[in-house]
């Protein structure tokens, strides 16, 4: 690799990371605005998440007496995991410096690592709600993770690679072709992302009713900068998942090169697609009611089986391609 290519790839990589860090709270704010509009409520300010983060960062941390060092390390680690995940997804360009270091399976592993640490942090103080949330989070995790992997496998088998850059490159720059298997995979992916990001049919991000909480229950004991990091990480996760969905199922417009012009075009495409994606998420959340926790396995089991079907359909219908 020439020095020039190295430098541009590094810059693209950093740019992606920065965009993810900067835009992630905005995406959350946008979804909230859409949701409020759809429900005929007065929407909160679009930039509210940034204010919240800033406020939390400025506040003191109130730490429970028996919180261990794991509890204090976890927010930083979780944030790093999510930031890296968001940076690994090819959103602007497929020419990323760190792309070879982690493929789709490693990305799923990264999400899993963050989940394990947040669950452990939830159990650390030893409150009833913390362990309840941790157990539910792991329940969702163990069902969502294989489903997500199977979605990636479908894309991998189509493109003959598990490297995200190659997958997205193949899907974006291939001559136009309809992949019925991707329809299955898309439905499965949507279901998984709803569950993984604690969205409505599975969890309610705005709930304050303890018994139905999942994500919120785990992080009850966090405050100040720790809470800010975790909230920011959660929005990064939503951002990463949205970008994944865009990259896998609507990849057109992504930059092949690392030239500034191509990146700018790709950036415009990205923002547009994210806005649409956020609206669709708000729509789904408005149209559905939250389900009982024990319907979740059924929901995610269906997602898993749909992803398996995607692979089978690919083998049957697209085997020759």
């Amino acid at each position: 690799m020439s020095l020039y290519a190295f430098a541009t790839q590094l810059l693209t990589q950093l740019l992606e990371l920065l965009i993810a860090l900067a835009l992630a709270p905005l995406l959350g704010g946008w979804v909230n605005v859409c949701r409020a509009r759809l429900q005929k409520r007065c929407p909160p300010p679009l930039l509210l998440p940034y204010h919240n983060l800033l406020k939390l960062f400025r506040k003191d941390v109130l730490l429970a007496h028996n919180a261990s060092s794991l509890f204090r390390v976890a927010p930083y680690l979780i944030f790093s995991c999510m930031a890296l995940a968001a940076a690994l997804v090819p959103t602007l360009s497929t020419e990323l410096l760190f792309a070879p270091a982690a493929d789709a399976i490693a990305l799923v592993g990264l999400f899993a690592l963050a989940r394990v640490f947040i669950a452990l942090a939830g159990m650390d103080v030893g409150t009833a709600f913390g362990s309840l949330g941790a157990r539910r989070e792991m329940l969702i995790g163990f069902l969502a993770e294989p489903a997500l992997l199977m979605v990636f496998f479908t894309a991998s088998i189509i493109s003959g690679s598990t490297s995200l850059a190659t997958i997205v490159g193949t899907l974006a720059h291939h001559e136009f072709a309809i992949y019925p298997s991707l329809a299955f995979a898309g439905v499965a992916f949507t279901m998984v992302s709803l569950a993984e990001n604690g969205r409505v049919p599975v969890d309610n991000p705005t709930t304050h009713l303890e018994l139905t909480m999942i994500h919120e229950a785990m992080i009850l004991e966090y405050s100040g900068r720790h809470l800010a990091l975790i909230e920011w990480a959660a929005s990064l996760k939503l951002f990463a998942y949205s970008c994944l969905g865009i990259a896998l199922f609507f990849p057109f417009g992504i930059a092949e090169s690392t030239g500034p012009g191509a990146l700018a075009v790709a950036g415009v495409f990205l923002v547009g697609k994210l806005a649409v994606g956020g609206f669709v998420l708000a729509l789904i959340e408005t149209l559905n009611a939250k389900m009982r926790v024990f319907r979740t396995p059924e929901f995610l089991g269906t997602a898993f089986l749909l992803a398996v079907l995607a692979i089978l359909v690919h083998l049957l219908l697209e085997g020759g391609r």
Partner: peptide
């Protein structure tokens, strides 16, 4: 560096539930 490293120890919050003991966990 940007913000601060202040930290105070306090009782666990647990939604205000006061009778926290080893038996209330999972």
């Amino acid at each position: 560096a940007v913000f601060h490293g202040r930290l105070r120890r306090a009782d666990a919050w647990d939604c205000g539930f006061p009778l926290l003991s080893g038996r209330t966990q999972d």
